[in-house]
């Protein structure tokens, strides 16, 4: 069980500590995102450091959009020095979808190559072949989107990421179980660890925003109409509460369903700013208390 918390959109690190405190007993590790859609938030490595300080285990995301190979190497050394061990490499949503569309994107590497780079550093030399003063040792992770096209090529990318060195995978948020099952038939033979992605929905507007503005998201009509029906005939606060409850129920059902799919080893809940929902959801799925790891 891993959870994702949103890094602060500013310099207040107490926010990250607050968000972590809400979820840390309900998961085994906490994922921290890296400037999603190019919207600047506190550095994922720095946030991972604050996660460590609370006694939780961080998973640091690194996107290829904003850094070249030099910065990758430098930040990976720093991350290891801070005690960060789990890194998830992502290509990164295009910044044209975010709040800073005027920026220059980098994409010196893609996510597969970034994993190759990290794996290379673990061998004791940098990309130039120079010996490292201290060799980092990471648990390398990656992501895949079961809903992206073309399906065969997306499955090959999972294989490429595995071959590059990825040991575990987070998936895009799952609402379309049928398609996820089809994709898992391609992933199962690869023998990788898969954490199925879950985002609890809290409004119809959110579902629609995700459908249109978040890349690679497939939300079936029936999910949206379930939210609609839940709120039907209700007003203001009651309506909101009913829709949130339905969103959590959908998430709970999805968690229970994916746990029965062969090849799924865990669940990755992305709270997208709704950290308060995580404890109840984890409890509802009978996944609390978490086993003691250390």
């Amino acid at each position: 069980m891993t959870c994702e918390v949103a890094p602060p959109h500013g310099a207040d690190h107490t926010l990250i500590e607050e968000r972590i405190r809400l979820v840390k007993d309900y998961c085994d590790a906490i994922n921290i995102t890296d400037n999603v859609r190019g919207i600047p938030t506190m550095d994922s490595g720095i946030c991972a450091h604050f996660i460590l300080k609370t006694g939780a285990e961080p998973i640091m995301q690194m996107s290829a959009r904003d850094r070249n190979r030099v910065l990758y190497e430098s930040q990976l050394y720093g991350a290891y020095a801070l005690g960060i061990r789990n890194i998830v490499f992502i290509t990164g949503d295009h910044s044209l979808l975010g709040t800073h569309p005027q920026t220059k994107t980098v994409f010196d590497l893609d996510s597969v190559q970034a994993i190759q780079l990290a794996k290379h550093l673990m061998g004791g030399t940098d990309l130039s072949g120079a010996e490292l003063e201290g060799v980092p040792e990471f648990f390398l992770g990656a992501t895949f989107n079961p809903f992206a096209d073309p399906l065969e090529l997306q499955a090959w990318r999972v294989e490429k990421k595995r071959d590059a060195g990825a040991k575990f995978f987070q998936t895009q948020a799952i609402y379309d179980l049928e398609r996820f099952q089809i994709f898992m038939t391609k992933v199962r033979p690869l023998n990788v660890k898969v954490l199925a992605g879950i985002i609890p929905l809290r409004s119809k507007k959110m579902a629609q925003f995700m459908r249109t503005r978040i890349p690679g998201m497939r939300i079936p009509d029936e999910v949206v109409s379930r939210l609609e029906k839940a709120g039907a005939g209700l007003e203001s606060k009651e309506k909101k509460a009913a829709i949130c409850a339905e969103g959590l129920l959908i998430a709970e059902e999805t968690i229970n369903a994916v746990r029965n799919i062969q090849g799924v080893h865990g669940v990755h809940i992305m709270s997208v700013g709704w950290e308060e929902s995580i404890p109840g959801l984890v409890e509802a799925c009978n996944l609390y208390p978490r086993p003691i790891l250390r």
Binding site: T91, D93, H94, D110, A148, D149, K160, P215
Partner: peptide
């Protein structure tokens, strides 16, 4: 994204994210 190991996870129904 100038990817060499593409496509990214934003490719859907033949279109770019």
């Amino acid at each position: 994204k100038g990817m060499l190991n593409g496509p990214c996870g934003g490719s859907m129904d033949g279109k770019c994210e």
